[in-house]
Amino acid sequence: MEIADILIKFGLIIVIFLISLVVAMYSTYAERKVAAFFQDRVGPNRAGPWGILQPLADGGKMFLKEEIIPTNATPFLFIVGPSLAILTACIGSAVIPWGQNIVIAGKTIPLQVTDINVGILYIFGVVSLGVYGVMIGGWASNNKYSLLGAIRAASQNISYEISMGLSIIALLLVTHTLSLGEIAQQQHGWHWNVIYQPVGFILFLICAFAETNRTPFDLPECETELVGGYHTEYSSMKLGFYLFAEYINMFISSAVMVTLYWGSYNYPGMDYMNGLLGPTWGPLLGFAVMFFKVLLFIFFFMWVRWTIPRFRYDQLMDLGWKVLIPLAIANIVITACVITFL
């Protein structure tokens, strides 16, 4: 590999990293604004025009707060917890195809950090690592509420990973590949996978809510029962990292859903637009379309949060094991039958 290629890759990584951080940062602001709008309020509007500096103010507050490590906590693991949470949240974006190959100054650059042929498995691996951050943090706090929150998070994530994986299998039967880049290419124009796999998409969506610990599945952070859940003992930026990781996870899982089911960077009439705009601006428009879809999904996450109340824990487990897994298996069987016999 030439030096230039390495530099381009490096630049791409930095850009994607920055985008996910900025999106996560402004998701906190958007969450508060959206919550306010849903409740006929105004939301944060004092820091800067329309309050757009609010995330900076929050971040500054987080950094300047006193860092407290409880006496009975295990200091090393206490720090490892949030670090692991944010690390696993950030590395998920590496295999997501953000656009078609773009030509800049005669050089073709793929808008994907790496197109490994098991991209989906990589995503799953990273997602299941994510629960370790929560688990370690909750356990190292040496506090019963933190531990209960961590146990809830772990069992919830493990339960929903199964139905998530099963819902993906039906999709793989359709796509015949595990590479996210190829899956994105297959959905050219309007051939989006959600048309062929609507049930699979709904299952995946529900599981994504559970995996990112969002309402209605935010039981690990259930204030009424668990104080703060797994991050009860955390303060300053370590708490910030946990909260931040949740928003990055939301961004990544939105991107994964868009890539797998909602046509990634594809949109109807893209060939015409690509011909019109050329090989540099065409893919950029594709990237903008993808980004727009991702933002819509993030908005949907928030919309659901301010609509649906939290599940009870036994209901959560019932839904995961008795409804979603049988549905996913039925979906696989039906998809397989359709593909084989038609």
């Binding site: 306010a36 709008f37 849903f38 409740q39 006929d40 105004v42």
Partner: peptide, 8 residues
């Protein structure tokens, strides 16, 4: 409610 005028 999203498009209602805020009461604030």
């Amino acid at each position: 409610h999203f498009f209602k005028k805020p009461v604030t």
